[in-house]
Amino acid sequence: MSAAAAQRLTEIKKRYPHPHSAVMSALYLAQEELGVIDQRGIQWVSEQLEMAPVHVQEVATFYTMYYKQPVGAYHFQVCRTLSCALRGSKHLTEHLKKRFHIKPNEVSADGKWSYEEVECLGSCGTAPMCEINDTYFENLTPEKLEAIIQRIEKEKPELRLSTLTDSLGDGLQGQPKSEVR
């Protein structure tokens, strides 16, 4: 883990009344650098926050957004919960399965793609939807999803929190537009 990450964590720790509150941020920092949360990440967080490794491990395994297994450079998270299911989310998952020739939570041979079904992402009014890395894509059909995949192949955007911008853009840079009225 880099010195910059340790520096960031020192800053974050200071914001809380108790440094242990920074454990979730610390795990995010570790995941950002390592790509997964494995023993290296657990060890680092445990040293930085002076928490027992088993304690950090417990936290890491409790939450779904800390990846214990590597995921693809583009990780597709298709919402399978009721409102999305009612509007055809299953077709999105089927498309990904055929497109990437992998099962949920497998990574394609080139390390590029993976997908899973997740629970409600708070985007039910624009169902069905899929989160790719940290970016929401809404009002999808298999065709629209395919168009997004093709753009990803061409433009190679990161779609990560650190690269999300504030603009209400249309493009790959997020589609932040929960629909009003």
Partner: peptide, 16 residues
């Protein structure tokens, strides 16, 4: 935390 299925209103306030 807004994670209850069918609920997406807090997101709108936080975003807009």
């Amino acid at each position: 935390d807004e994670s209850g299925p069918g609920t997406f209103k807090d997101r709108l306030l936080l975003e807009r």
